[in-house]
């Protein structure tokens, strides 16, 4: 009667071409805003510097315990674009290495905090109104109730102040925000008829949660991740600034700002350039985050 279906060609069968198409659409919405493009540029530059700092820094030896008192306190010049600090280290090279530490902090914290936060939010939202929801969300509320910086300060001051403990502290205060975000989305999606239809069919709960609901939450999660890179770097810098994060001579941007603070205002370049670098990174990720949000806002319509 009918020819075998498997011999037919289904329009847009290949997944690759579908993916390419949706990428093209995303780029179309993204490039509409010049600010998003600037954000993308800054972020690409930041990642590039973070990856290749040892190769592009003019004085890579400045990153460590290097001392050259003959060149100390030099103002910005061609040889030292950001000047030199009290030990004669090249501030420009140290700032480039600082990108590395900041990005590492953000990458470690977010990859530790986001997955459990997202999974807990997914479970709590799916089981909304049950004791599972109560348990997870009340624990999240407890963590949210403590001012983030205070919690991090407490943890870092009890334990040895170093970059590892700083990362653990920031992670511990970061996950509940993902739980909250995902919880709110999932608890509304779980009442959609397509979820009910799957439940009536008897699909596995893990399948419904991870394969059907989670993909619809990716937009806001990705936006938040991007925006959070900036915030994590800021908190990390704040911890370093008060001496609870990375310890000297680590070329961490926050530590550098703190170290240079005692030489203000005469040798302003020692702390102003690292501070500007922090602002630069945060600005970049915020602009990029806005651009990503615009993509999902446009494609969801």
């Amino acid at each position: 009667m009918t020819e075998p279906h498997s011999q037919r060609v289904y329009l847009r069968r290949r997944r690759l071409s579908r993916r390419y198409e949706s990428l093209k659409r995303a780029w179309y919405y993204f490039k509409k805003s010049p600010l998003s493009l600037i954000g993308l540029g800054i972020v690409s530059l930041t990642i590039f510097i973070a990856l290749f700092a040892p190769y592009i820094a003019p004085h890579p030896e400045s990153a460590g315990l290097y001392m050259n008192f003959e060149e100390a306190y030099q103002p910005p010049s061609w040889k030292h674009p950001f000047g030199t600090d009290a030990y004669g280290r090249d501030v420009f090279s140290r700032v480039l290495f600082g990108f590395r530490y900041s990005m590492m902090l953000a990458a470690v914290v977010l990859s530790l905090a986001a997955p459990p936060g997202i999974i807990l939010g997914l479970i709590a939202g799916y089981y909304r109104g049950t004791w599972i929801d109560m348990l997870i969300m009340r624990i999240a509320d407890i963590f949210i109730a403590v001012p983030p910086l205070v919690l991090a300060l407490a943890i870092c001051s009890v334990l040895t102040p170093n970059i590892f403990n700083a990362m653990m502290a920031v992670t511990l205060m970061w996950w509940p925000w993902y739980t909250r975000l995902v919880y709110n989305m999932v608890s509304s999606i779980r009442n959609e008829y397509y979820v009910i239809a799957l439940e009536l069919l008897g699909a596995k709960k893990s399948y419904i949660m991870f394969r059907e609901i989670l993909p619809n939450c990716l937009g806001p999660i990705l936006t938040k991740l991007t925006l959070d890179v900036g915030w994590v770097i800021l908190i990390g810098a704040a911890l370093s600034f008060v001496g609870l994060g990375a310890q000297p001579p680590t070329p961490d941007l926050g530590t550098m700002v703190a170290e240079g603070g005692q030489y203000l205002p005469t040798y302003w370049w020692i702390s102003v350039f690292p501070a500007l670098a922090i602002a630069f990174i945060i600005l970049g990720f915020n602009l990029l985050g806005d651009g990503i949000r615009d993509i999902f806002a446009a494609t969801e319509r």
């Binding site: 959609e192 008829y193 397509y194 009910i196 239809a197 069919l201 059907e212 993909p215 619809n216 969801e300």
Partner: peptide, 19 residues
């Protein structure tokens, strides 16, 4: 369970937008 099926009121909500 397989014998009884339902078609919902709101077609927009009854299909997963990401599938």
């Amino acid at each position: 369970r397989k014998e009884i099926q339902i078609v919902f009121q709101d077609p927009a909500s009854s299909l997963n937008p990401s599938k």
